[in-house]
Design a binder for these strands. Structure first.
Length: 213
DNA sequence: CAGCTGATGTTCT
DNA sequence: GAACATCAGCTGA
């Protein structure tokens, strides 16, 4: 199997909720037009299971210009704008199956100073929410919508994932009134990591940040 | 720190 | 003109 096949397999291997969990501990990267690199460990994801999922953009097969990337092959980037913010998703199944994973939070590792400038914030507030991640990277448009997340300039590196001590699941955020599936446990997070959105201070692991070793 | 609320801009009706 | 996979700033404790 060549590298391209291996990369595609990562996203197609398993159900979308399994992929959402496998993405925890992998690295999200972005190289901006000035050549600056931004990286962070993915610490929170949500799975959206397509046509049957009442909380998903593709519920009942809804297919518009805006959500078209969800129908692309595994690894297709789906950027969605909401309330003036931009959110990053990746399609997880074969073309025509509109399932995907929303990246909700990262633990920054590279480009932190520029992220602080882009966000006008410091500390855990830098990237502890889906709109905050894109803003930290300086992405405020749909330019990379529909591109592949297996290659620069916006890509996921899953070659040496960091291992969570524990993966916690809960109901997804912000979809409370979106029907029967709203309460299903399709949100996944690295237990104890301080960059997880809405985590309480007393639940944070300040020694290992929720990672093994 | 938790909880509430107004601002926000794109998409679809 | 409504809906929305959000955020920051404010309040009260």
């Amino acid at each position: 199997m060549d590298i391209k096949s291996a990369e595609m397999a990562f996203f197609r291997e398993g159900t979308t909720d399994q992929i959402a969990q496998k993405l925890l501990g992998t690295t999200l990267n972005y190289r901006n037009p000035d050549g600056q690199l931004f990286s962070g460990l993915i610490v929170e994801t949500e799975a959206y299971l397509g046509e049957l999922d009442s909380a998903a953009h593709a519920f009942k097969g809804r297919h518009t210009a805006a959500n078209d990337p969800l129908y692309g092959p595994a690894g297709t980037i789906y950027i969605y704008s909401i309330y003036g913010h931009y959110l990053f998703d990746v399609a997880t199944q074969e073309a025509g199956v509109p399932q995907g994973v929303l990246i909700r939070a990262i633990q920054p590792t590279v480009g932190i100073e520029q992220m602080q400038i882009n966000r006008h914030q410091t500390g855990y507030n830098l990237t502890n929410g889906p709109g905050k991640v894109m803003a930290a990277f300086g992405i405020h448009d749909l330019n990379l919508n529909g591109r592949l997340a297996q290659q620069p300039p916006l890509w996921i590196d899953y070659s040496h994932p960091k291992q969570p001590q524990a993966i916690i699941s809960s109901a997804r955020i912000g979809v409370e009134n979106q029907g029967d599936w709203a309460s299903k446990p399709y949100r996944f997070l690295v237990g104890g990591n301080p960059y997880v959105s809405k985590i309480r201070k007393r639940e944070v692991d300040l020694i290992n940040l929720g990672w093994q070793d």
